[in-house]
């Protein structure tokens, strides 16, 4: 599925929720489910500093596609990370760099991406796009 197909899928899933509690229960569930990054990568080197919650992010390349693993110490942040990974991981570098992540707004989680929340998510998305850009450059140089 493309980035936008995945986004639309998530928007569809979220349209089933009647209120914020159901929505957050789901996000918390997503957050609890995944140990999304191996302990060895939970280090300063992979940490994105947010002042409220911490985020760790690792990217790697396989067959011209970019894969992400990430984690956070706050479970709501982790749940949102799970959604971001669902959308962006395994996509082409170019597509990641140029992606417009409209699903966040559409499912009513935009407030989590405000820099004043300082939860690390805003910088995480920036980093994901940088990885996309960086790997794109690398691939171009190889050609």
């Amino acid at each position: 599925m493309s980035i936008n197909e995945k986004q639309d899928q998530i928007i569809d899933d979220f349209s089933l929720f009647d209120d914020w509690m159901q929505k957050y229960d789901y996000i918390i569930d997503l957050g609890k489910k995944l140990p999304i990054i191996e302990q060895e990568y939970k280090t300063e080197d992979y940490q994105i500093k947010g002042c409220q919650s911490r985020v760790w992010l690792r990217a790697y390349e396989q067959d011209g596609k970019v894969f992400f693993k990430a984690d956070s110490d706050a479970v709501i942040t982790r749940g949102i990370i799970a959604l971001l990974i669902e959308v962006l991981s395994g996509q082409k570098a170019d597509d990641i760099a140029n992606s417009d992540l409209y699903f966040i707004d559409r499912i009513g989680l935009k407030e989590h991406l405000s820099p004043t929340r300082s939860n690390g998510l805003t910088s995480m998305i920036k980093h994901m796009k940088y990885y996309g850009l960086g790997l794109k450059k690398k691939l171009e140089n190889h050609e």
Binding site: S53, A74, V75
Partner: peptide, 10 residues
């Protein structure tokens, strides 16, 4: 078992 940020959000 909870992070202050999660509590604050709810």
């Amino acid at each position: 078992g909870t992070h202050p940020y999660d509590l604050g959000i709810i």
